[in-house]
């Protein structure tokens, strides 16, 4: 394995006086799947949101594909980039949200073409691609359905297709199944599992331990803004070192 696609170094983030991330270091190898576990409030989502600069770190940096996200190196300083540059960086990183966040006023296909259209892809090409992507996530022919006409699982699969439409090298999943009825979790996980085999790098914040064990190459356990365990799933999940992580796993399994 060569240079990691994502390198996170000494990342800190505070909200007011509350420290959410307290020096996180993490590498994501190209094409790997990383599951980020941890109790709520441990900073999992914030860590993920720093990777595409939805949150601005207070210290440290995130590097994706050799480029620092949100900042431009200038001598010994990192200067925040312009909104236009940040948008261009985000366009290369997919994100899937816990609550899907599909554009409620647009159909499934319109949701998917929104990103490509902003990049100047012709409407016809983008539309055809959207239909293909819908078929790929098991929603062939649902191009004209509005989000309100789709189940939670279907909406999340449209959201994944929307992220894929940008041909990202990296997709971030922020608890993609936490807002779903139990019977709909499987359909979304199976789509993510298919993606894992395609060589796209995935970072998944999840509480689905079984899924993490099956699909992830790397499992990271976050607690109070620190990574307290990390490694391959077998090691972290079966030979858990820390008391805190063991207690958490016992509670969610």
């Amino acid at each position: 394995m060569t240079r990691p696609l994502v390198r996170i170094r000494n990342l800190h983030k505070q909200f007011g006086s509350h420290t959410v991330l307290d020096g996180v270091d993490l590498d994501l190898a190209e094409g790997s799947v990383t599951a980020i576990l941890g109790p709520s409030g441990s900073g999992k989502s914030t860590l993920l949101r720093c990777i595409n600069h939805l949150e601005r770190p207070d210290r440290g940096y995130v590097e994706v594909g050799g480029e620092i996200i949100g900042f431009r190196p200038d001598g010994n300083r990192l200067r925040e980039r312009s909104p236009r540059e940040i948008a261009a960086q985000r366009a290369r990183i997919g994100m899937v949200f816990q609550h899907f966040n599909l554009f409620a006023h647009r159909t499934a296909a319109e949701n998917i073409v929104e990103g490509p259209l902003a990049q100047g892809v012709p409407v016809r090409t983008a539309r055809a691609r959207a239909s293909e992507l819908l078929a790929r996530v098991g929603l062939a022919g649902r191009d004209d359905a509005y989000p309100s006409q789709l189940s939670g699982g279907q909406q999340q699969r449209v959201a994944i297709a929307r992220a894929l439409a940008m041909d990202p090298a990296l997709i971030l999943f922020d608890e993609p199944t936490s807002a779903l009825d139990p019977e709909l979790v499987g359909e979304v996980l199976s789509v993510i599992k298919d993606l894992a085999a395609t060589g796209i790098t995935l970072a998944i914040v999840t509480h689905e331990i079984g899924f993490a064990r099956e699909v992830a190459d790397q499992v990271v356990f976050l607690e109070d803004g620190h990574i307290i365990e990390s490694g391959d799933p077998a090691t972290v999940l079966q030979h858990t070192q820390s008391e805190r992580a063991r207690a958490f796993l016992a509670a969610v399994l």
Binding site: L54, G94, M95, H99, N101, E114, G115, Q119, R162, M166
Partner: peptide, 18 residues
């Protein structure tokens, strides 16, 4: 307009005006 709608649009790399 829910905050998540804006974040979804930003994560697609849309400009602020768009």
């Amino acid at each position: 307009v829910p905050r998540g709608q804006v974040e979804a649009a930003e994560s697609l790399g849309l400009s602020r005006f768009r």
